[in-house]
Design a protein around this nucleic acid. Structure first.
Lengths: 145, 145
DNA sequence: TACACTATTTATAAACATTATAAAGTAATA
DNA sequence: TATTACTTTATAATGTTTATAAATAGTGTA
């Protein structure tokens, strides 16, 4: 339930000594309820009704804070701006190269890859990222017309 | 052998009707010989001795051309600028979060993941990307001192 | 080889995302 | 409620990448 997620997120912030401001509350709430994977600008635009004076810098600052606390993951794809994703459980993303839609895709973590990489390169592995690209059913069906 | 790779790359360009200019030749050569994964600016700086009048736009334009022809892959990590990698064989990258070093890591393609993603989401999958993050042996040994 | 055609390069400016700065404001604690 | 340190705001700066138009130079053909 979203309300719980928000509560837990706010608690996590408190424990780290991060102040809860109305802006932070709203950004978190938006991230949790958003089924898309918004850019900083998406968030800024979505909240300008509620916070007409909010600065873009505030959005960026807080996204960085959330990322450092581990609440949010920053996704850097090829396009111009980063996207931000509230972290729930381990999942990957399937991305439509035509319309940009991002769909969550659950898959057991690729532990084996990390182990092998560690063995071959001598790195101490911390994590990995993976995305899958293609065209979504909608775009795909349009193409065939 | 690098000389062969360059020759093949130039042939691939000719077949696509892309003109071979000295700048393109030099950028390709640099990409092939470079064991790092340079940014556009790295390339620009590396070649300014040979081409004092070359524009940054030329580097970007040609990297895009190479990418469209399939000779080069653009890597977008979290940091400010894209990195470019001459495509040889299927491999992934292991990236040091401390010093930024990138090491190639060969691994059989994750076909299974693509199949499952296609099945679950209905996407027509074209490709995927994966990177592995950690700290390299050098950085790691420094940390423990 | 010289010509003509068109792609490419250059130089410059513009666009865009993101970060830095300093002053004003505000959450949290006692 | 007063204090203090953290946040927000407004603004400017930074840095990467793209757009534009004029100058230049590959490439095929005569």
């Amino acid at each position: 339930m979203s309300t719980n997620q928000l509560k837990e997120a706010l608690d996590a912030l408190k424990e780290t000594g991060v102040r809860i401001t109305p802006q932070r509350h709203a950004i978190l709430e938006y991230l949790i309820n958003s089924m898309s994977h918004p850019t900083a600008d998406d968030i800024y635009k979505a909240l300008e009704g509620k916070f007409p004076n909010m600065s873009v810098a505030t959005v960026y600052n807080n996204l960085r804070v959330f990322r450092e606390v581990g609440l949010v993951k920053e996704l850097t794809y090829g396009d111009a701006s980063s996207r931000f994703d509230f972290i729930t459980t381990q999942h990957y993303h399937v991305i439509c190269e035509n319309c940009g839609k991002i769909v969550d895709f659950h898959y057991p973590g690729l532990d084996e890859v990390e182990h092998l990489a560690s063995h071959v390169t001598g790195f101490k592995i911390s994590h990995h990222r993976m995305e899958i690209y293609g065209s979504c059913p909608e775009c795909h069906s349009k193409e065939t017309h």
